[in-house]
Design a protein around this nucleic acid. Structure first.
Length: 289
DNA sequence: AACAAGACCTGCATGC
DNA sequence: TGCATGCAGGTCTTGT
């Protein structure tokens, strides 16, 4: 599920539920996610007030009182299910702690709201650090620039792609090149920029790099807007993010007509799926060079 | 060193 | 219906 736009959307939802509230209860239902959780995970968060929720790359950073910072990654299938507390007028029946077999961590706030980390595949992970140590955290060191930062420009991107023999697709999937892109938005950005995923990274310079940087920014901004519009749904009972409401131009559309081509997909072949590094890439060979 | 492929884990859609 | 296969939004590790 989560690339940068989804993580951004999740962060906004979490901020609404958590910021200014204390975590009155934290329940850890298994010792590990993808990696072991740190010693005393629940105890180190319990009783602390949440000061801020923000995003870096695909990481969720929850800053708490006493310099404690929770760093969370959703992996492939991780979700944060937000369940509002009992309405004023008396507590209802105590809701089940875990509604789902893959509810691994539950955070309960002083307002009675619950945030449940649910992750079937368990590729997600969490760690605790401190405000002072955050910038040097091994998972954050080496991340590339934030693509929505005004400092992310064509020349900055070109510098990161320079001299590399790997494919443009693989280079963009590398979080050290640009932070936050994943399999879907790399395909979408390359389509928007008219660049082939198979082109060598080092060949993207000058105007091509500027076009790609602009395409990345535009695709991510639109996706966040789409996610943002479904934020209310997300906060509601199902806990599902309105992710698939976003329409993709090429991702998952092999054999279908390219939205930019007039040609008949039955004749031209339409959008092509190719496999790079064991991951699917979707592109239009006529519009993307 | 850079790069590609494999591993991690579960669920779901598809086809026999 | 049951079972095997392949695929899925990420990242770390291994092997060339």
């Amino acid at each position: 599920m989560p690339e940068l736009p989804e993580v951004e959307t999740v962060c906004r939802g979490l901020a609404t539920a958590l910021v200014g509230r204390s975590l009155v209860r934290v329940v850890q239902r298994r010792p590990d996610l993808r990696f072991p959780l740190p010693e005393g995970f629940a105890d180190r968060l319990t009783g602390r007030r949440v000061l801020a929720v923000r995003r870096r790359a695909k990481y969720i950073l929850v800053s708490c009182q006493d310099e404690t910072v929770l760093l969370a990654h959703l992996g492939m299938s991780g979700r944060m299910v937000i369940a509002p507390g009992a309405p004023a007028g008396g507590p209802g029946p105590e809701p089940a702690l875990a509604e789902h077999p893959h509810d691994h961590i539950v955070f309960e706030t002083c307002a009675g709201d619950r945030v449940t980390f649910r992750d079937a595949r368990r590729f997600g992970f969490m760690d605790l650090t401190t405000t002072a140590a955050l910038a040097a955290h091994p998972r954050l060191v080496g991340l590339g620039p934030e693509p929505l930062d005004p400092a992310f420009t064509g020349p900055v991107l070109a510098a990161r792609l320079a001299g590399r023999g790997t494919s443009l697709k693989a280079a963009l999937m590398d979080q050290g090149t640009v932070a936050g892109l994943g399999n879907i938005y790399v395909s979408e950005s390359l389509f928007r920029a008219g660049l082939s995923p198979a082109r060598a990274s080092r060949t993207v310079t000058g105007r091509r790099a500027a076009r790609l940087a602009a395409a990345i920014r535009a695709v991510l901004t639109e996706a966040i807007a789409a996610g943002g519009s479904s934020l209310r749904d997300y906060v509601q009972a199902s806990g599902e993010l309105g992710y698939f409401q976003h329409r993709f131009a090429v991702y998952g559309r092999a054999g279908q007509a390219c939205p930019g081509c007039d040609c008949d997909p039955a004749v031209s072949g339409g959008i092509v799926r190719l496999v790079q590094g064991n991951r699917s890439t979707f592109y239009c060979p006529r519009r993307q060079r």
